[in-house]
Amino acid sequence: MSETTPVEITSGQIPTIANGYRLQFESAQDTWVLLYPEGMVKLNPSAAEILQRCDGQTSVDDIVAKLETAFETTGLTKDVHSFLSIACEQHWISLS
């Protein structure tokens, strides 16, 4: 992990997949991947669920709400915030 302080995520921010990055499902690998110039990361299922909702329209709060509805659960705020913070550090997403 890098030594920089983690990016602070606030509930009203709107995350988008960063320019040059592409999220897609790869059937040969049976997994969601994030593609970027000359590279690829395989995503675990929860990362994929969050990133699929980073559409540039939905706020962090709404992403949490949508996930909680989809998975019939509550209390996802912390997990979503900490993942988005990492995603931001990795330049996978940008926040507006």
């Binding site: 790869e26 040969a28 593609l35 000359e38 590279g39 690829m40």
Partner: peptide
């Protein structure tokens, strides 16, 4: 079709 994903 085999699963290549990056093309240079």
């Amino acid at each position: 079709a085999l699963g290549s994903v990056q093309c240079g």
